[in-house]
Design a protein around this nucleic acid. Structure first.
Length: 236
DNA sequence: GCGACAG
DNA sequence: ATCTTGTCGC
């Protein structure tokens, strides 16, 4: 798909922080997604001692969740993992994967935070602005904010608070399983994001787009890019 | 200064 | 995130 804009990623941490504070102002916390037909999950994987990031994007048709396209991109990185600056490590590889994508997903799920971030610009929000697409952050743990344990039933939610403001939602996607933390990335509202996550979490803790991206990213890291393309095309 | 800290 | 085998529970 078309990347709306980009910027240098090889910045010093202090400069990266300044860039986040600027980009943050362009996030939209609402959106009108009249019909979701294609959902995408994006994720990255890498070997312990290596600086090569393997990023992937997997597109699924909604609501059947059939995988219709998978792309990957492996890129060398020098930026280390620093809490709050994850985008500067995984961003370049993810953007290259998106450039190779033919589909135009209606909503994209990312592994990590949306606005539930120290400067309100987690990887889902950052990528959302650069792609100019609706994005959602689906994290397995919290970076900032506080939350009370949601109820035990699947579908239970509990707001993630920060300074009295709701910045995300803890969502129980599966019974007897730790919740995931959903936050708005860009151009979507929190309730719609939570609904989509619950609608696509089928039998596992992680929603299918994210889960499929995880699986494919690991395959690419272990077996390399096999030049895989779409397995089918979206039909009416 | 100390502890916390997405992936 | 990754390194790693088996193991306990649903």
């Amino acid at each position: 798909m078309e990347i709306n804009e980009t910027h240098p990623f090889d910045l010093a941490p202090a400069e990266a922080v300044r860039l986040q504070e600027t980009l943050r102002k362009r996030i939209s916390l609402s959106g009108d997604i009249d019909e979701v037909t294609l959902l995408a999950g994006a994720d990255a994987s890498y070997a312990k001692g290596s600086n090569e990031i393997h990023a992937v994007v997997v597109v699924l048709r909604y609501p059947d969740l059939t995988v219709v396209e998978r792309v990957s991109a492996s890129i060398e990185t020098s930026f280390p993992y620093i809490p709050g600056l994850l985008t500067f490590r995984e961003g370049p590889a993810l953007l290259e994967a998106f450039r190779r994508l033919r589909s135009e997903p209606d909503v994209i799920f990312f592994d990590g935070q949306g606005i539930a971030h120290p400067r309100g610009l987690g990887i889902a929000s950052h990528m959302g602005v650069l792609l100019d697409r609706p994005t959602v952050g689906v994290a397995k743990s919290l970076l900032v904010g506080t939350v009370t344990e949601p109820g035990p039933a699947r579908g239970s939610t509990s707001p993630v608070l920060r300074n009295g403001e709701t910045i995300g939602m803890a969502v129980r996607t599966k019974e007897r399983t730790k919740p995931v933390y959903v936050s708005v990335g860009h151009r979507i509202d929190l309730l719609s994001a939570v609904d989509l996550v619950l609608a696509t979490a089928r039998g596992y803790r992680l929603p299918e787009p994210t889960r499929q991206a995880h699986l494919f990213a690991n395959t690419v890291r272990r077996e390399g890019d096999r030049g895989e393309r779409q397995t089918s095309l979206p039909s009416g």
